[in-house]
Design a protein around this nucleic acid. Structure first.
Length: 987
DNA sequence: GAATGTACAGTTTTT
DNA sequence: CTGTACATTC
């Protein structure tokens, strides 16, 4: 056992009074906490274990400390209270803690379900009602963190309102903006209040609420507070830099006796984005002026080289961002010789591919040659999950086993298959899911037949499932009968039994394709379903789950693989405190591979951990530091308790993150970057280079990449081996038999240009997709406008204002909107817009020539067909073409570049033979008319695009074009680009 | 300097 | 689709 150093001893032996321990990376922080608890128990007269409270932020950390304490001191320390802040608060709430806990995603779903009761206006988009919910949830959470109650916020808003009004009056500024701002703020206050009240009523509690309520409870109940103050004679806090104002307040109240010891490192504060207060240490010093401060700066983890690099990196922090300037991490003098290691390296590549390839091959080489120990001694750390994609492929190619921490699995083939099945069972009219479920390899369906069904369904405007069922007698494919039988069976189950009661049965029926890794993902999803049933659902029925899961996806939730070591810890759920006695170690999982696995993790995920060899991956400009994303709704500075962030705190936080990455390394550290025309190294890296010290060497590395076809073969092989889905394989196939005449509408052309694969799904295969709300509204609107315009033609005064309302009522088809909120908004909006159209044409006066005029002509090796909303003659005798647009207003630039308008222009000239003077894009949402025209050059360009598109379609070239718009694509769950190849998992 | 316009890229995570 | 950074303009 290594002796504690002087500072550590001091920290351990300090008995009463506030204690602030600044513990840099690798300075034995956990050890100090553990030893301190042990010391107190041995040396403070009458002190009982249960009188010690140690608070952490994660259950894992709590469990780890408990483990180490027990290891060292055994039974003597039994009863020590190790807990997370949240479970401690939840326990405090007593009766109130019986509530169901809502995490961020669940709170989103909760609000989505109660959307109507929130009184949203500004923060509500018709086309996407849930759009701002995550921002609102974030805001409410920030309020809790800072002990701002709904009433507090409402007060603030009213004060703000009078302030703004005064300012508007005195400065004679347009008060319009001020009015708007006031309305927005009132809305925010309203949502916060209602959201809290609703959750209270329905028996839910969010995480932020646990802490703020606990604080309120103690404020309102002096007896409870006093009792707690007596019970916990000593309080310890780990990762103190991550505490928020509410948690700090809690500590202050609990520790009137002053026996509060906090441990942390401001240089590792990387969670301010989720509400940790700025400058917790500063707060502590202010509140406890009599505190003792101890700085642990002897590092026991890294080599002197690594440490000097890390130290340089963090010291680049501008002074205003350094709250604890007195910490200077170093290796203990007597150990300097034994802690000499290899030089820290920068690997500079000329492409991302090379970066991935070389990193993978070097790890493989070093382990296999015996130069470095095991694979599990290596960790590759990156800023964002996306950065690891190419590395994963490369590691696979080299046969290097790896484990990804915090891996999201809800987009793996197997899980997508299961979800598709559930959706077919619960909502058979969902044709996209039907296509996925039916094409599962075990049923033996072939693509041509699926396409035949889809086209039939599409033409009859019926769900795919209906068509398949009609064909049942024919036994058209081997597993057809079985497929339908299984669906029927589970659909019966689903009506009367909880999902969790038959989910495993269904899993078993859906064949055991896929390897070990897919199985693990599936297990994680099954656990997700179980958890939903146990903790979140009202009925447990499939229909409720499907609604939940759709919202879950919309809210951006992800299902992650559990960490193996978490399994031990989950024995203590929220509500219980994790005490020493309940920690039986049940089993040890044997290492799957004697060499272990390379750990792949985000830097955040690696906090608190250490590895022999650390490779920090993808240190590129704009990626690390990542661009800041400001919260949409910020808590006003005056409500933010504690010190305000100074200057550009974003870059400071990123720099600390960089520091965290570097300080994970024990023996070796490599920093990877890429330089080429488009990509440059991270400024953090450049700073280090400029510092120009000998502990860091740069290497420019060039490596031969494996042949492209080899990569492809490998990809196909790995997909086959692990059972990637049939439908995505089909989606990727080149199909030569699709050669035939190509007919394109403007929207089809736009679809292909946006994403060829989307075109394949919707136009070639013709998977039927019922129109979404926006589309539905658009078509109703068009019908109504058509009739109105017809009535107004020649005699603009003919129709009265009341008649418009009646006309709208006649066209409105309410039942087709599934969402009541949306329905009401669209209905109102539609009538307004219709009046807008009336206003516009009443003023200008038009004589209608054509409405919904179809055209067809050959252009650029394709048949072009389409329909023009309206052609009219205005009072000046000019001929104009009008295209009505619902949805967000188009800009003049949009109008100028609109493919659709170009095609219409050409159609008038080539097919309809109607010479027009101008084309008009009519924005229904703001009654703005955008005039536009086309020149010969514009036509040439579009002709070329049509030629290329029709060529691509004939050749069967349909590559997916993944991007941000995929979020709104109907075929996401069939898309190979969205389907994550199965990946390895944690051991 | 505010006010518009254009180009570009698109987190991290625990309770 | 949308916010941000930077450019352009009055």
């Amino acid at each position: 056992m290594i002796q504690l150093n002087k500072q550590q001893q001091e920290a351990v032996k300090h008995v009463s009074g506030p204690l602030l321990i600044v513990a840099g990376a690798g300075t034995g922080k956990t050890r100090v906490i553990v030893e301190r608890v042990g010391f107190l128990l041995q040396n403070v007269p009458d002190l009982q274990p249960h009188q010690i409270l140690a608070l952490t932020f994660s259950r894992k950390a709590a469990a780890e400390m408990r483990r180490r304490l027990q290891e060292k001191y055994g039974e003597r320390v039994e009863g020590c209270h190790f807990s997370t802040f949240h479970s401690f608060c939840n326990d405090l709430l007593g009766e109130q803690s019986k509530k169901k806990v809502l995490d961020k995603i669940d709170e989103w779903i909760f609000l989505r379900r109660h959307l109507e009761e929130l009184g949203l206006d500004y923060y509500l988009r018709v086309s996407e009602p849930g759009k701002f919910l995550s921002d609102l949830v974030d805001f409410c959470s920030r309020c809790h963190d800072n002990l701002v109650s709904p009433a507090d916020y409402a007060n603030y808003v009213e004060k703000l309102a009078s302030r703004l009004k005064d300012a508007a009056k005195s400065e004679k500024k347009p008060s319009e903006n001020a009015e708007k701002e006031i309305e927005k703020q009132r809305e925010i206050a309203r949502v916060y209040e209602r959201s809290e009240r609703l959750q209270e009523e329905k028996g839910f509690l969010n995480y932020g609420g646990m802490v703020s309520r606990a604080v309120n409870l103690l404020k309102n109940s002096p007896e409870t507070l006093e009792e707690l103050q007596h019970r916990y004679r000593f309080v310890l806090v780990d990762e103190f830099q991550d505490t928020n104002a509410a948690q700090f307040e809690l500590l202050v109240m609990l520790c009137e006796h002053g026996n509060l010891a906090v441990v942390g490192d401001d240089d590792q504060a990387i969670y301010r984005f989720r509400g940790a207060s700025h400058g917790s240490f500063e707060q502590f010093q202010k509140h406890f002026p009599e505190r003792k401060s101890i700085v642990l700066d002897e590092n026991y983890r890294s080599t002197v080289q690594i440490l000097s690099v890390a130290q340089t990196a963090i010291s680049m922090n501008p002074p205003e961002d350094r709250l604890m300037p007195d910490k200077n991490l170093h290796v203990p003098k007597e150990k300097e010789n034994e802690r000499q290691g290899a030089l820290t390296e920068i690997w500079e590549f000329s492409s991302e591919e090379q970066q991935a390839e070389y990193t993978a091959s070097e790890i493989a080489r070093k382990v296999r040659s015996g130069e470095a120990g095991k694979f599990s001694d290596f960790a590759v750390l990156y800023r964002k999950h996306r950065h690891r994609d190419q590395l994963v492929d490369a590691l696979r190619r080299h046969g290097v086993p790896f484990a990804i921490r915090n891996l999201a699995i809800h987009r793996t083939p197997r899980v997508l298959d299961l979800v598709a099945c559930l959706r077919v069972i619960g909502t058979p009219e969902d044709s996209v899911s039907t296509a996925r479920a039916a094409s599962h390899i075990q049923w033996g369906l072939e693509l041509p037949r699926l396409v035949e069904y889809c086209q039939l369904a599409s033409r009859g405007r019926r769900p795919l499932m209906e068509v398949i069922r009609e064909k049942n007698g024919g036994k058209e494919w081997p597993g057809m009968q079985k497929f339908l039988e299984i669906l029927d069976r589970f659909s019966r189950f689903s009506r009367f039994q909880r999902l969790s009661e038959w989910f495993d049965l269904m899993r078993a029926e859906l064949g055991g394709m896929g390897g070990e890794e897919e199985k693990t993902a599936e297990d994680a999803f099954a656990a997700f379903v179980k958890k939903w049933d146990a903790e979140k659902s009202e009925t447990g029925m499939l229909s409720e789950f499907l609604e939940y899961f759709s919202y879950f996806e919309e809210a951006g939730g992800s299902v992650n693989l559990p960490e193996d070591d978490e399994k031990e810890n989950t024995t203590s759920a929220v509500g219980e405190s994790t005490t020493l006695d309940q920690q039986p170690k049940l089993w040890e999982k044997p290492e799957a591979d004697p060499l272990g696995k390379v750990i792949l993790s985000t830097v955040h995920g690696a906090k608190g951990l250490e590895y022999k060899h650390v490779i920090v991956f993808h240190l590129l400009r704009r990626h690390f530091p990542a661009n800041r994303k400001k919260p949409l709704i910020e808590l006003p500075a005056e409500l933010w308790k504690g010190p305000l962030p100074k200057g550009d705190h974003h870059i400071g936080e990123e720099r600390r993150l960089f520091y965290v990455a570097l300080t994970r390394a024990k023996n070796s550290l490599v920093l990877c970057t890429v330089t080429n025309e488009r990509q440059q190294p991270s400024p953090f890296l450049e700073e280090l280079r400029k510092a120009g010290f000998p502990d860091l060497i740069s290497k420019k590395i060039t490596v031969d990449l494996p042949q492209a076809d080899k990569i492809k073969d490998q990809a196909i092989a790995s997909q086959k081996q692990s059972g990637g889905s049939q439908i995505t394989r089909w989606a990727k196939e080149l199909m030569s038999n699709e050669k035939r005449d190509v007919t394109l509408s403007p929207s089809a052309l736009e679809t292909y240009l946006g994403c060829p694969l989307k075109y394949r799904f919707s136009a070639t295969w013709q998977i039927p997709v019922p129109p979404g709300p926006a589309m539905l509204f658009g078509s109703i609107m068009h019908g109504a406008v058509k009739e109105l315009v017809q009535l107004m033609s020649n005699d603009p005064q003919k129709i009265s204002e009341e008649a418009i309302g009646k006309l709208w009522e006649r066209h409105w088809k309410a039942g087709d909107f599934r969402d009541a909120v949306q329905e009401r908004m669209y209905r109102k909006l539609g009538e307004e817009q219709l009046r807008g159209v009336w206003q516009v044409w009443k003023e200008s006066g038009i004589q209608v020539l054509e409405q919904e005029k179809s055209f067809q002509f050959d252009w650029g090796s394709a048949h072009i067909k389409g329909r023009i909303d309206q052609i009219h003659r205005n009072t000046a005798g000019e001929t104009e073409l009008v295209e009505y647009k619902t949805g967000r207003p188009k800009t003049q630039k949009d109008a100028q570049e609109s493919l659709q308008m170009t095609i219409y222009g050409k159609a008038c000239e080539a097919a309809l033979k109607i010479p027009i003077d101008r084309m008009i894009l009519f924005n229904l949402s703001n009654q703005e008319l955008l005039a536009t025209s086309r020149k010969l050059k514009d036509y040439k360009e579009v002709e070329e695009e049509i030629r290329q598109t029709s060529n691509g379609i004939q050749e069967g070239i349909f590559p997916p074009n993944p991007g941000f718009l995929c979020r709104y694509c109907d075929f996401q769950n069939l898309c190979p680009a969205q389907e994550e190849a199965p990946k390895s998992y944690r051991t």
